[in-house]
């Protein structure tokens, strides 16, 4: 039986930890609401963007001289993986699940003899990836001081990516982030940014009667619009990924801290039980000692 003082200290320390995890859970819950609103508010924009783009692309992607951002460079020798993770830890499997799918991709690309470059967004992913891929990491964008992700942050990353693309440093760019489904479910997602990927359901939508056959008048010229639209699309997708990520991070943290709080509660219960038992046992022993001492007289 552990001694009483030790047990008491244990209980006190677990209680303190529980207080912290509970506070973190509540902070995450409050932040989650805001992040979730922002993520949901950004969804229509990127969805419409995709729709507009797919309408455009259907008529343009195969055409000769289509912009490289849409049609690709024609090679896929060098891949850029943009891995967006969080700045802080203690959020369950959030970072590791994003890093995991990015790493799987990197491994399969490298074994196929392709060159891999990694752009890290967020410190946590960088910490993990640099152990294995310090050669491949080209840059790290930290969002440490950023409270609410704004479009400027996405722009910063987007312009880096576009600059590299224009300099011919990579052929295919894929973005990794966690899509926010619910507090308990975040889905690590890979999204191909360059060449622009028109997802299959958008294609289906585009071919549906309500939007198909739309023969646009372009103002200004089609190519001019594409020139503006395509880089914009990259930025918008990054922005959306950042927002989804921040909502997912808070969600993951909230559920992680919730279970931590619950575990701490269970632990305190068990420790208190042991503590009371040993206290009782001690009293009983003392009583027996006193009684047998009295009898001996």
């Amino acid at each position: 039986m552990a001694n009483l003082k030790e047990l008491k200290d244990r209980i006190a320390s677990v209680t303190a930890t529980q207080k912290i995890t509970r506070a973190m859970q509540m902070v995450a819950a409050a932040k989650l609401r805001r992040a979730q609103e922002a993520a949901l508010a950004a969804r229509p924009y990127s969805e419409r963007m995709n729709q507009v783009l797919s309408n455009l692309a259907n008529g343009n992607a195969s055409a000769e001289g289509a912009p490289k951002l849409l049609a690709g460079t024609g090679k896929d020798a060098t891949h850029l993986l943009v891995v967006a993770t969080s700045e802080r830890g203690l959020c369950g499997g959030f970072n590791s699940s994003i890093v995991k799918i990015a790493r799987e991709k990197a491994v399969s690309l490298m074994s196929a003899g392709k060159t891999v470059k990694i752009l890290c967004v967020g410190k946590k992913g960088h910490d993990v990836l640099k152990r294995q891929y310090s050669q491949q990491i080209v840059d790290l964008v930290e969002l440490r001081g950023v409270k609410n992700v704004g479009f400027v942050n996405a722009l910063e990353i987007g312009s880096k990516v576009l600059e590299m693309f224009e300099a011919g440093e990579f052929d295919v760019c894929t973005l990794y982030f966690a899509e926010f489904k619910s507090v308990i479910e975040q889905i690590p997602t890979a999204l191909q940014l360059i060449p622009a990927q028109i997802s299959s359901d958008n294609k289906a939508e585009a071919s549906a009667p309500n939007t198909s056959g739309a023969c646009y008048e372009y103002e200004p010229e089609e190519n001019e619009i594409l020139e503006v639209l395509l880089p914009r699309n990259v930025n918008v997708q990054i922005f959306r990924a950042l927002l989804e990520n921040s909502a997912s991070e808070q969600g993951a943290r909230m559920s992680a801290m919730d279970s931590a709080t619950r575990n701490a509660g269970e632990m305190i219960e068990k420790l208190t039980l042991t503590y009371n038992r040993s206290r009782q046992a001690k009293i009983t022993t003392e009583l027996i000692e006193i009684i047998s001492g009295a009898e001996a007289l």
């Binding site: 507009v52 455009l56 739309a214 023969c215 646009y216 008048e217 372009y218 103002e219 200004p220 089609e222 001019e224 619009i225 503006v228």
Partner: peptide
């Protein structure tokens, strides 16, 4: 406010894409 000039969109407008 289109980049090539302002235009008004009324119901049943023809498809246009403008900056």
């Amino acid at each position: 406010p289109g980049s090539e000039g302002e235009f008004t969109v009324l119901p049943m407008h023809a498809p246009v894409l403008s900056t």
